[in-house]
Structures are given as structure tokens and as C-alpha cells.
Design a protein around this nucleic acid. Structure first.
Lengths: 231, 231
DNA sequence: CATTGTGAATCCCTTCACAGCT
DNA sequence: AGCTGTGAAGGGATTCACAATG
């Protein structure tokens, strides 16, 4: 299979959302033009993106909303359950643990962790916040069940992010969604042998950084600006 | 001036952070190799990115940390103050209002808004949460001072995001950082004539979407997978 | 002489035009 | 007739090699 452009992956996530909106409005079919309009891209782009995953449309007609949604969910691995732990239960961790839709799409919060004594032991949405020292044993215990802990959401202060990432990986968690405004040094992160499934031994990191978003926004709002020494 | 690749803008934000780390460690100079290592990119990339903004290095030596930082901050418009309002003071809005560093870089929270009666009137970090109906008058009042309201952080539920964006734009706020998992229909968003500064009449939107981040992460964790009908 | 700055080459993604299907 | 699927063209972005230089 060809490998899929990262930009395409991001857009497909959007298409799924758009398809869910359409489904909620009882729309059965949609053309690439309609999807494109709602997703804010061109119809060409929609069709090209979809060809990376298969052929889902009917010429002359368009796409069946339910079918395309199902197929794209499968393609992204969202037809299965992903067990998630949150590391860092400050305000941001709490907001995410309580976020409506965070348990959609088969993302299941299974554990909450922090180090602050005034936070450990509290209950959030039926889960008791555990101390970070329990992370290793906890993950090991979950690993015995049908599925393991798949992802860690990193919502600790920037200065502790690398250490917390290390702890997650040492515990056997191979996927990290990093909310801290730091670049995780992934060359230091290697799953222990025991967890090194064939082809899945490396750590996968995605970043969500709203401070960076504010800065990009600021730049784009400057508009056409004076460049460097114009020559 | 050449226009700057969007990917470059994102990386430059990272370089600034890296430079601040270095400054905090009292490092005076750094090569493109050192910056690249910390930013997780190649040295070529760093040098090419920087040339879009000017020539900041010394051959044979490298870059002076403080100088490069200052120049990049200026290039991104982060040497000036950006006034920010938060629309949607649920858990996420609160988390952001209280986020350490959210007031760094000359981003200044100047107003907080919501519609829920149990939230309006509460005080957060010295600001009283106002009702959305006050947004227009508030922005108009700030516009009289040296600077106006530059950005709105949209932290309302998905189903209200488009309407809230409309309200921001109608009030004269031309930059939106959208946290809701929806594609804002920007063709419906036009600044009122009164605010249409030359070259700055269109609305600028950046998205920060952690649910999308989780889905992308899930996909990348699938690893090399079976493609569509292999032929 | 180590390191920057940058044209040229390469690679990848987007756009397009149209063939192919229903 | 209408819309998808896709090879080809076009445009950007990344990589590279090396000339420039303090």
C-alpha cells in the first residue's frame, strides 16, 4: 500500500466528522463537492484523499454517507477500542477527562494519574486519580485483559513532560498525545522489549499545542508584512 | 517578500521555544545542528526556514541565541501585545484562562464570555465572566484604547461554535483560535466595514483540536497496515 | 575550518482534465 | 447526464551540495 500523506490523514478525520453531521441530518448520500464544501477543501482533494483508502463512491451518484463513514473509521482504526490514560490531572487534564465526546469513537479513559497529593485519590467520572508511581503496575495489570493501555494523554507542565513521557513508555504505552509546549525527544523513548510487538516497537507522538496555535494565528493576522532587508 | 510556507511558520514557533530553553540554560550561541536536534528537524530545514525571515547567523560560528529569538519574535508579531477574549468558559475555557504561559508572549486576556447564568458573573484571574450579549459593546469599548481585541479563543460546545464565531466577527474580532471540533464556515464570516482595515478585512482562523489529534494518533499507531483491495 | 546561506535537484502533495462508470 | 476515480501536470516544500565567510 502506498503510504498516506500526513495531510490526508488530518483531512480524513475531518471528513468523518462531516459525514457524522450529515448522518445526524439524515442525509443518505453526498457528492465530493458537498463533502468538500463542509470540510473547507476542494472536491479534487476529497476524491484524491479517498483513493488512498479505497473506492467508496458510485459514479454519477456520489457517496453513501453511512458506508463512507464506516469505511473511513475502519481505515483509521477507529472501529476498535483504544484505552487511554491521562497523565497530569491539573485543569487541562480535568477538562479533557470530562470532555463530551472524549469517550466517543471508542476512546476509553481507563486511568488518571498525577503526583500532587491533593489531587491523587480524587474521583473524576468514576475513576480515582492514582499516583504516578502506580502507572507501571496499572498498565501491566490492564495488559492482561483483552486490550492494553494504548495511549497516554500528556497534560503535565512543560518541565515535566519529557520525564512523564519516559514513564509512560517505560510502562509500555506506545502512543502519546502531547499537550505540553515542548518537543518530546523521541530518540530517548523506546518501548521495553516485552512490549515490542512486531512493527510496533517505536513510540508514536502527536502534539496538541494551543500556545503554538495562538502564535501562528498572530503571525497570519499580521498580514502581508514587510519582509527582511528587501533587496 | 516571498510568502512563507505554513509548515515553516509552525516550525519557527518551535524554534522560538527552543531558543528560550537555551536562554534559560544560559547558552549564548547555537548552531543550526543544535537547534535542529532540539526541534526534531534537520539542520537544512532550520537554515532554510530562517532564510525566509532574514540572515541571522555568523558563518563558522552559528546563531546568537538572544538575537535570533528577538528577530523571530518580531517576525511572528510576538513583540507586540495581542488582546484576547475567551468565548466559552466551561472547563476548557477555565483551563486556558488559568494556563501558565497563556499571558506570556504578550497575549493578554482582556475578557471572558459565556451564556450560562451560573457562570456569568464569576471571577477568573481578576476578570469577571460576562454574558455573550456584552461581547459587542465590550469589544467596541476596548477598540477605543490604544489597542483593540485581536483574537477570540473559541471554547464553546461544537454545536454553538459557528454562531459564537459569527458573534466574535460581528463584534469586530478578526482572529479566531477554534477549539471546537467543527470546520468553521469562513465564507459566512466577514468583518463589518468599520473594522475592515486595509488588507485585514478577512477573518483568520486556526484550529486546535485534541479529538482530531487522538484520531490521527490512533491511525499512526496502527502501523503498516493492510491497504484497500490490494491488486 | 566550522558553519551559514542558498541555488539546484528531488520529492511529495495538490490540482487538473478527462476517461470510465452508473 | 452526472459524478467518481486517476494518470499527468504543476507547484511547493524538503533535501542537498557547495560556495561564501567570519
Amino acid at each position: 500500500m502506498a503510504d498516506i500523506p500526513t495531510a490526508t490523514v488530518g483531512r480524513v478525520v475531518t471528513y468523518i466528522r462531516v459525514l457524522e453531521e450529515l448522518e445526524a441530518q439524515n442525509v443518505l448520500r453526498a457528492s465530493s463537492g458537498e463533502l468538500a464544501r463542509r470540510a473547507g477543501v476542494t472536491p479534487f482533494q476529497v476524491r484524491k484523499d479517498l483513493t488512498y483508502f479505497g473506492r467508496f463512491g458510485t459514479r454519477g451518484i456520489g457517496y453513501t454517507v453511512a458506508v463512507l463513514r464506516r469505511e473511513l473509521l475502519r481505515a483509521l482504526g477507529l472501529d476498535q477500542t483504544w484505552n487511554v490514560v491521562i497523565v497530569g490531572m491539573g485543569r487541562l487534564g480535568h477538562a479533557i477527562a470530562n470532555y463530551p465526546g472524549a469517550s466517543d469513537y471508542q476512546f476509553q479513559n481507563v486511568g488518571l494519574f498525577d503526583v500532587a497529593p491533593d489531587v491523587v485519590g480524587r474521583e473524576v467520572r468514576g475513576l480515582t486519580i492514582q499516583h504516578m508511581s502506580q502507572l507501571g503496575p496499572f498498565v501491566a495489570s490492564v495488559a492482561g485483559t483483552p486490550r492494553q493501555v494504548d495511549m497516554g494523554l500528556l497534560t503535565v507542565p512543560a518541565e515535566h513532560a519529557q520525564a512523564a513521557a519516559q514513564a509512560l513508555v517505560a510502562a509500555g504505552v506506545g502512543g502519546i498525545l502531547n499537550f505540553a509546549p515542548v518537543v518530546l525527544q523521541t530518540q530517548d523513548l523506546h518501548l521495553p522489549e516485552a512490549f515490542a510487538a512486531p512493527g510496533r516497537r517505536e513510540v508514536t507522538v502527536e502534539n496538541v499545542d494551543f500556545l503554538a496555535g495562538m502564535k501562528r494565528l498572530a503571525f497570519y493576522m499580521l498580514g502581508p508584512q514587510a519582509g527582511p532587508a528587501e533587496e
